[in-house]
Write a protein that binds this DNA or RNA. Structure first.
Lengths: 140, 140
DNA sequence: CTGACTGCAAACGTTTTGCACGGTA
DNA sequence: TACCGTGCAAAACGTTTGCAGTCAG
């Protein structure tokens, strides 16, 4: 998916330059905090305002184009909406890596919930630890 | 566990009145945001300051006595540290309910990670949906 | 052309800090 | 008693808002 204009229009949003920029850096970098998005975009387009990023992130989360990833001890990050997956969060560098969701886990969670009177809409699995790069850094 | 004084001392923290109050309301209510804790405690002890709650929550999270529960679209909540479990988050009322962790899920996640060079320290599973009470409210 | 979107700057709420005082061990 | 912890008020920070001008459709 690189057609951000269409993605936006499908969701009832005008395809502005600013929005496409946000989607672009999110796709490039995976998971970003608000100010990481801001810093990245303003390198190239210094006139973009932080307020615009806030307004659009809120809007695109509402429309389901973008998803919030809340993380213990850090500010929330945001990513493009895609199939369910697991987040590996490095507590050293703060980076987040995606892992495809495991089918067994999915099934177990769904059946667990079926016993409850709980309408399940969204899963969110975060695993916290130390990534390979940080392990090497620490070792050396 | 109702011996908060001992719990605090075991973790190198003085057993002050304020800290024991925080632990008490957390045990009573399960999951609370900072200002919910504040509102609850000041009903009975109006002199307790918000700054003290912030300072102590940060401290007790560092010491592992309390755990942060970050939630999409809401401020983080905090709970007493206990065995791993799953959070059912109601997107209508914001309430969080605990479910015991499922052994199969645990195993699947652990083996998934073993393939990676990732040192796993903490799991966090949030399931978002609508709780029974809110379903009834909506139906009526 | 029109309504939606942007940028700016001000307002707001939340979290953090510094310091003098008070309480735990 | 010594030191850590508290409360207060101010400061810092992140986020939201209002408005006048601009742009996508």
């Amino acid at each position: 998916m690189t057609n951000y204009a269409e993605l936006l229009k499908e969701n009832g949003l005008k395809a502005t330059f600013q929005r496409m920029n946000i989607l672009e850096v999110l796709e490039k970098n995976g998971h970003m905090s608000i100010d990481a998005i801001y810093n990245d975009i303003t390198k190239i387009h210094p006139s973009l305002s932080l307020a615009t990023i806030y307004k659009n992130i809120i809007l695109m989360v509402e429309k389901g184009v973008v998803v919030e990833v809340p993380i213990s001890g850090l500010k929330s990050k945001y990513e493009l909406a895609k199939e369910d997956h697991i987040h590996l969060v490095c507590t050293e560098c703060g980076d987040v890596e995606d892992k495809p969701c495991v089918k067994e886990t999915d099934i177990v969670l769904s059946t667990l919930i079926k016993k409850e009177s709980f309408i399940l809409n969204k899963r969110q699995i975060n695993l916290y630890g130390v990534c390979k790069e940080c392990q090497n850094q620490i070792a050396s």
